[in-house]
């Protein structure tokens, strides 16, 4: 699967994922706590500098993320210009833009596996309430494995329906594909669970020391 990671040899890429996430959280607190133009404008400039110059990300990568919220930003600006004032509009748009871009930089410079490791680390305290952090890595991996599998099965079901002359479009088409698809994958889930158990998924958790090297 295509992740949003862009490989480069930059200090931003090398920074541990946990620090980058903390910085992102810090930035979001800052731009909302200090709602002034210099802060928000400075944040956008700093993030662009970091992303384009330091991390050497192609501008297109950041642009694509910004485009997802572009119409929102334009609409917001117009709405504020009409209802409140241009200054509030500019401020609102700038601080949203800063956050969206900063998040995009973190995502583009951090590998999925690193993120998974951070999540497992964040979840470690949950061990006290009976959650096993190692299982979080497992369900993430399984979901990634299931996405292409389900897409493929959906295609196969639609082909089979088309081969027998029925391929309703639109909503009815969606329903007639999803029902057999769900029944198929739910049945498969039963076997998958058995296969996991057969490979030791339900073993007692290993002692902490040994689990470290996962």
């Amino acid at each position: 699967m295509l992740a949003l990671y862009v490989p480069r040899a930059s200090p931003v890429h090398r920074t541990p994922a946990g620090w980058k996430l903390l910085a992102l959280a810090g930035l979001s607190v800052l731009v909302f706590a200090v709602p002034t133009l210099p802060v928000s404008g400075g944040a956008v400039a700093a993030v662009l500098l970091l992303g384009l110059a330091v991390a050497q990300l192609p501008a297109g990568v950041l642009l694509r993320q910004a485009r997802a919220v572009l119409w929102w930003l334009v609409g917001l600006f117009v709405l504020h210009a009409v209802l409140t004032d241009v200054l509030t509009g500019t401020l609102t748009v700038l601080r949203l833009l800063a956050l969206v871009l900063a998040a995009a930089v973190v995502t583009a410079t951090t590998r999925v596996t690193e993120m998974v490791a951070v999540i497992e680390r964040i979840c470690r305290p949950l061990e006290w309430v009976g959650v096993r952090p190692a299982r979080i890595g497992l369900v993430i991996a399984m979901a990634l494995r299931f996405i292409p599998l389900i897409a493929e099965r959906a295609d196969r079901i639609r082909e089979a329906q088309a081969a027998r002359g029925g391929l309703p479009r639109g909503l009815r088409g969606l329903a007639t594909t999803v029902v057999p698809l769900l029944v198929q994958v739910l049945q498969m889930a039963h076997t998958t669970a058995e296969a996991l158990d057969a490979r030791g998924a339900d073993d007692e958790p290993l002692p902490r020391r040994r689990r470290r090297d996962r």
Binding site: M1, R145, T192
Partner: peptide, 22 residues
């Protein structure tokens, strides 16, 4: 086999049972 492969890539999936064994 589709029902028993649980990791997205080949080597990861093979390693899974060994992880459980520690």
């Amino acid at each position: 086999p589709d029902a028993q492969i649980v990791y997205p890539t080949v080597a990861e999936d093979v390693a899974y049972g060994l992880e459980n064994q520690g």
